[in-house]
Simulated scan of single mutants.
Amino acid sequence: GAIKPVVTFTPNWGNILYYDNVTLTCDVPSTVPEEPRTYHWYKDNQPIPADQQRLHITSLVVEDSGDYQCRTIGGDISDPVFLNVTENYVILQRPPSAIFEGDPLTLRCHHIRDFNAINTKFYKDDQEIKSSDTNSTFHIPNITMSQSGLYKCTKEIQRDIATYVFIKSDVFFISLKGIVLFKTVALEILVDLEEGELPQKCCIVTLFQK
């Protein structure tokens, strides 16, 4: 069958803060004939007025959340990709795709635009793991199963010249997809070849298990 296009986000986060901007790109397989191409975009299975490879959405609102798809004339439609727009002063942003053991992981404590913020803190299972006034990201070069857990962040948002308000993000459970490991187990199976005969040693069977 035909290879489906893929919708990607820039910036590539699993959740995006309202009033931010995002660009959706319809990545078409190289086997599809080159330009000129006409693109069709869909949100929640309904067509939307866009015909370019990139769909720019500015000043996002919660109502922009939904499943987005694209296709080209004569081509297959992409799988839906969910755009998650969150309304808050501070959110903890995480990757949109599954995280596997050994992968690098970057989390970002992101605050609403046009506000100043200080004193960013990250927590895992309610224990502080990082504090910074200048760096809003937390990076793990090679994540392990022991680093799964409940993550959140906090910032102090400047409400006026003299007042900062302590704001915390939602809590996200970061779970890892374990690498599937297989091992072989050799078993001697005793079978009856014909009714009435004594069991005989037949064969060695290899089993696979996680």
Rank of each mutant, 00 (worst) to 15 (best):
E197N: 12
L193T: 13
S175G: 09
I157H: 03
K168T: 13
Y164R: 12
K155T: 05
F172Y: 13
C153G: 04
S169L: 02
K177N: 15
R159W: 11
L181H: 10
R159H: 09
K183P: 00
F182K: 07
L187D: 11
L187M: 06
T154N: 06
F182G: 04
P199I: 10
S169W: 00
F182T: 10
L198E: 14
D160W: 06
L198C: 06
Y164M: 11
K183V: 04
F182L: 11
T163N: 15
G196K: 05
I174N: 01
R159Q: 14
F182P: 00
L150C: 07
S169P: 01
V165K: 07
L193G: 10
I189E: 15
G178R: 02
R159N: 09
L150M: 12
L190D: 11
I179V: 14
V191F: 05
Y151Q: 09
I174C: 04
L193Q: 15
P199F: 09
P199A: 09
V185S: 04
G149Y: 02
I161K: 11
V185G: 00
A186D: 14
K152D: 10
A162E: 13
I161Q: 12
E156Q: 15
Y151N: 07
E194K: 15
L198I: 09
V171F: 01
I179H: 03
E194H: 14
V165S: 08
L181F: 04
F173Y: 14
D160Q: 07
K183L: 02
P199T: 11
V180D: 08
I167T: 11
V171S: 09
F182A: 07
L181S: 13
I179D: 03
L193A: 11
L150K: 13
I179R: 03
T184P: 00
V180I: 15
I174P: 00
Q158H: 05
K183F: 03
C153R: 01
G196S: 08
Y151V: 10
T154V: 05
F172N: 07
K155V: 08
V165Y: 05
